[in-house]
Amino acid sequence: MRLILAEDSALLREGLVRLLAEEGHEVVAALGDAEAVPAAVAAYRPELVVLDVRMPPTHTDEGLRAAVALRAAHPALGVVVLSQYVERTSAARLLADGVERVGYLLKDRIGEVGEFLDALERVRAGGTVIDPEVVRRLFARTGRADPLARLTPRERTVLEALAQGHTNAALAERLHLSLSAVEKHLNSVFQKLGLPDSPAHNRRVLAVLRYLEG
């Protein structure tokens, strides 16, 4: 794929460029700040942009704001945000305008090369990927009044995998379940979360968003 990388750590940036090149991907621009990203996207028209949340000059949310703006201006562009820590507010802001072609990953995930590259591919293909650790932290914070607390352990596992952007077939393979069992668990999850079966709503998307609202 053609992609742009925005990461202020020169060491990590160059390491990612080499990793992606070795896997056959083309990094058309590797940037050290978020301000240069919009012009690079206009010039190179990548399929995917990977940005750090915290970038110069203030190292607060420059990368996140750039990601949100890119998603609004280029709906067909895949956007993956990297964060050093679990920041629920950042994830919610990133997904506020929809959850297609978007990912929120912790930087530790880069060390799991296969998972990291697979996440990038899923986002480029139109999917949503939320880091497994983010999902686990959000589960840990749910209270008894939260609808997520009504889910069984198996339903939580299925929803956790769903939040990572997997299809039903992939869920079945990862969890060693039949496809019909996955569908049964997902339907139960949707019902317990009060998500309507409507052509106007994507229940898979809404289920993922419930994590962040919780």
Rank of each mutant, 00 (worst) to 15 (best):
L3V: 11
S9F: 00
S9Q: 13
L12T: 14
L12W: 05
L12N: 06
R13M: 04
E14N: 12
R18S: 08
R18G: 01
E23W: 05
E23N: 04
G24P: 05
V27E: 11
V28G: 01
A30I: 08
A30Q: 03
D33G: 01
A34G: 07
A36H: 00
A36I: 04
P38W: 04
P38S: 06
Y44D: 09
P46A: 05
P46Q: 11
V49Y: 01
V49E: 05
L51S: 03
L51V: 12
P56V: 11
E62P: 00
G63T: 02
L64G: 00
R65V: 02
R65Y: 01
A67Q: 06
R71W: 05
A73M: 09
H74L: 04
V79H: 01
V79C: 04
V81Y: 04
V81N: 03
E87I: 02
R88Y: 04
T89I: 07
S90P: 00
A92V: 05
L94I: 06
L95Y: 12
V99E: 13
R101C: 08
Y104K: 04
K107H: 00
G111V: 09
F116M: 11
F116L: 13
A119C: 09
E121L: 15
G126M: 14
G127K: 11
T128Y: 05
V129Y: 10
V129T: 15
D131N: 12
V135A: 04
R137V: 13
R137K: 10
A140S: 13
R141M: 15
G143Y: 08
R144K: 14
A145P: 00
A145G: 15
P147D: 14
L148Y: 05
T152Q: 03
T152H: 01
P153W: 10
T157M: 11
V158S: 01
E160L: 06
A161Q: 03
A163T: 06
G165W: 09
H166A: 05
H166P: 00
N168C: 03
L171M: 07
E173P: 00
R174T: 03
R174M: 09
L175A: 08
S180F: 04
A181E: 14
A181H: 12
A181P: 02
V182F: 03
V182S: 07
E183D: 07
E183L: 04
H185T: 12
L186Y: 10
S188K: 13
S188L: 11
V189P: 09
Q191F: 15
Q191E: 15
G194A: 13
P196W: 09
S198L: 14
S198N: 15
A200D: 13
H201G: 03
V205W: 14
V208S: 03
R210I: 10
Y211A: 04
L212H: 01
E213P: 03
E213T: 12
